[in-house]
Design a protein around this nucleic acid. Structure first.
Lengths: 170, 170
DNA sequence: AAATCCGATTGCATGTTGCAACCAGTTGGT
DNA sequence: ACCAACTGGTTGCAACATGCAATCGGATTT
């Protein structure tokens, strides 16, 4: 019952999978925010996704092989969502989106720090991040470098700086 | 009357601009297919965009500063659409999309050749391509390297090869 | 036993999309 | 001068997708 794609162009097919307003937001939160449960994804991000839309996107992403869902042993109703190798390989795409958005949209400085760091780190940093995601989501051996920590540190520093500026001007 | 963004995250803002099924298809055809007129964009691509949707996307993209429109001196009704510096800087994003789609979607081999070449060429090739686009769309001096020609040659070779295979197996 | 948390589902209003028909102005051929 | 083809759209309509608030029954916590 699944309809056929509009064309075999790789850009088009990627767009048919991810070209909507929420799918990449969900993957972003799983990837960069390490949100793994429904409720974390529902309330965690600033964009405010509706619960029915989130349920629909999670179902679609699992169906497309970009997420897997397993039961949470600590809570019979909870599910834990994990990235897969294909969605981990979206790191360069999300990095490119962040880099473009930082330059060409009115992105907030605070939220742009991580995009800037990830852009500057280049392919070496993306690879390290992907290795770390494989460790977190697929059970691969943990790498030595923690890009997650680097990103968090940069974000915290930006928040602290912003707080200082506000205190000084406020 | 324009509503405010859902958040200041650069990924989210990029998604709010380009996160639909057609905007990037239109930009892809202008960028890689050098389609500059309404009718070329309407009939040229395989995906078959509807005229009202195309009109809407062109209007939005011009409004967002990703395209400009000027009158065609050879025909009083025709408009010529050109890329802008922001949309030219989408080259790395489209390259990443093509690279991902080539690996993780059932993209046709024929249409994947250009994505593969663009991925392998790396940042140096993207820069050369962007310089060429600046020459074609913004009147910048023409660069020596023509990535457009390289992409076209690779595509034609793939088509020829496909034709041979079909002749041999058919 | 009561309150809260969990991942959804339902109903409804609104927005987006696909599709075909249609439009008036422009152009080139005869 | 005439006409057919072409230009960049617009209109109407049906189907589908999305956003939002309220709600659900089961599981867990207090």
């Amino acid at each position: 019952m699944e309809r056929q794609p509009r064309s075999g162009c790789p850009i088009n097919l990627t767009l048919e999978l991810l070209g909507d307003r929420w799918s990449l937001i969900v993957l972003r939160d799983v990837m960069f925010g390490n949100r793994r449960h429904f409720r974390e994804l529902l309330g965690g991000s600033e964009e405010g996704i509706a619960s029915n839309v989130l349920a629909d996107r999670l179902r679609r992403l699992v169906e497309a092989g970009l997420l897997t869902r397993r039961d949470d042993p600590s809570h019979k109703q909870k599910g834990i969502y994990s990235l897969t190798e294909p969605s981990i390989q979206l790191v360069p795409l999300l990095a490119a989106m962040g880099a473009w958005g930082r330059r060409h949209t009115p992105a907030s400085e605070e939220l742009s720090v991580r995009a800037e760091l990830l852009e500057g780190g280049g392919q070496a940093m993306w690879e390290a991040f992907m290795q770390e995601l494989r460790s977190l989501h697929l059970g691969a051996p943990a790498p030595t470098r923690s890009v997650t920590s680097e990103l968090r540190a940069a974000f915290e520093a930006a928040k602290a700086k912003k707080g200082m500026t506000e205190a000084a001007t406020g």
